[in-house]
Amino acid sequence: MKFCKQFGVLAACMMTAEAMALQVNVRNSSGEPVESAVVAVYGDLPQRQMETAVMDQHDRQFLPQVLAVQVGTKVTFPNSDDIRHHVYSFSPAKRFELRLYHGTTAEPVMFDQPGKVVLGCNIHDSMLGYIYVLDTPAFAVTDVNGRAQLDVPPGRYRLQVQHPRADQLTEQAVAVGADEPGSVQVEFGRLAPDPRSVGDKTELEALFD
C-alpha cells in the first residue's frame, strides 16, 4: 500500500509537467465570491501522486475548514492547540473517531470512499470541518475571492462544484484549451448560513422563540 501511495504522488508530478491552469470563479446568485467551495474536475485525467493531507486543529477550529482529498488519501489530524480534541465523524463516507489526543499523536486516517465527511469535535461543539473525498485527482477549494485554480491537461471535462452549506452540487462541462489557461465562472445557488456563526444566541434563549 505504501508503495501505491508514493506512486500516486509521482503520477501527479508527471501530469503537472504538461498541465494547463484552469481558473474557476465561484459566485453566488448575488455575484459575491463563494469561499470554501470544492471544485472538482472529472474526465480523462492522469493519476496524481498520492500525498498525505493535513487537517490541522488550531484555535479550536479545523484548519482548513474544508479539505478536499482524492479517494485513498491519508489525512493526518495534528492538534496545534494546547488542549485535547476528540475528532470524530459519523459520515457514511468515513466513520472514525480520534479519541482525546494531543499534538501529532493521532494516527492518520485513510479516506477510501468518495463522499462528504463531516468532522466534529466531541468536546468542542463549535468545531466543524469537512473533508470532501473525491474520486478524481483534479480538485481545488476556492479562496476568499471564490477562486480556485486547477492544473489539468487540455481537454473536455465535467466540472463539479459543491459547498458544505449547499444542498445541491453544481456540475457543468468545461473545455480546457492547450494554449491558454481556462477560466470558468460558476454561479452557485443559495448557501445555508454558517452553522458556527449562530452561536450568539444561547440554546435556552432560543427555546421559547
Binding site: 452553522p195 449562530v198 444566541k201 440554546e203 434563549e205 432560543a206 427555546l207 422563540d209
Partner: peptide
Amino acid sequence: SVDSGSRY
C-alpha cells in the same frame, strides 16, 4: 435546527 436550537 442548530439555528433554532431546542424547541419547547
